[in-house]
Computed example of a mutant assay.
Amino acid sequence: MHALIVIAHPDRLSLTHAVAARVAAGIAESGPRHSFELADLSAEGFDPRFGQADIALHLKQAAPPADVAAEHARLARADALVLVYPVYWWSFPALLKGWIDRVFTQGWAYEDNEDGKLVKKLQRLQVHLVALGGADQATVHRHGYESAMKTQIDHGIFGYCGARVTGSHLLLASDAGYPGAHLESAQAIGRGLFDSRPQP
């Protein structure tokens, strides 16, 4: 099985990149039947701005722009999507949000039919979220940030398209053993990525 690991951080020396690399290492350890591709959105220069061509695609008036079509092809090859990202203002960084905006398109990720019914087109895809945050667990729980992020991202984005979020991880700077423990966790996530059991 094949995973697309998407990274949204401009600094290749960041913990985000190190975590993504360890997820990839875990997939490699899990056996020769499994493979991965790393997509570094910042290094690749992906344009997150939703423009006129994206509007035309949404309105079913045009084909996908070339960069969006390339992302569709990458995702079509993948059985699993792994998003590795820092938490900015309790959500995705703008680069990753723009990737979602432009790539999870009408007609490809979902279809609003003329009869008003929604067709969820990504039911084959499993999604794993690996978010890195700076707050402590007490703050996260006190304000309900984790449940708010799950509502927005797990349900609002991927549930809408039918993709299954089978792993959702919030790695915090206040966690015991930081940052080494996060690297170990990331490798374990990679090793277990294609297990049939949902990850906590």
Rank of each mutant, 00 (worst) to 15 (best):
S185G: 00
D11L: 11
D195M: 05
A43V: 06
Q52Y: 08
V84L: 03
G192T: 11
P65H: 11
R164N: 05
A63Q: 14
S185C: 03
G133N: 05
E111A: 08
G156H: 12
A70F: 03
H169L: 01
P93W: 04
E71P: 00
S14F: 03
L125C: 03
W90R: 11
F92Y: 15
A109L: 04
S196L: 14
D101E: 15
I189Q: 05
Q61I: 03
M149V: 09
V165R: 01
A63K: 14
P86C: 10
F36C: 08
G133L: 01
S42T: 12
V19G: 04
Q187P: 01
Y160G: 07
P198V: 09
Q126D: 14
A24I: 08
S42Y: 14
L57R: 12
H17I: 10
L125I: 06
A138R: 15
A39T: 11
Q106W: 05
P198G: 06
A3S: 15
H128E: 04
A66S: 13
T139C: 00
Y145H: 14
G159W: 06
D54M: 06
L15N: 10
K117N: 12
G98V: 09
L122V: 02
F46M: 10
E71S: 10
H58M: 13
H9K: 07
G26K: 04
A188E: 15
D112K: 10
D67K: 07
W99M: 06
G162Q: 07
Q152L: 12
P32R: 14
W108V: 07
A186F: 03
A176Q: 14
A73L: 04
L170K: 04
G51V: 01
L83D: 05
L118S: 07
P93C: 07
F104S: 03
A62D: 15
S147W: 06
A28P: 00
R142E: 13
Y145R: 09
P64T: 12
A76W: 01
R74T: 05
H128N: 11
Y85T: 09
K60H: 14
R74D: 07
I157M: 05
G180C: 02
R12N: 13
V23K: 03
D54S: 05
L57G: 03
D115T: 08
L171Y: 02
A138N: 12
T16G: 06
V130I: 13
G159L: 05
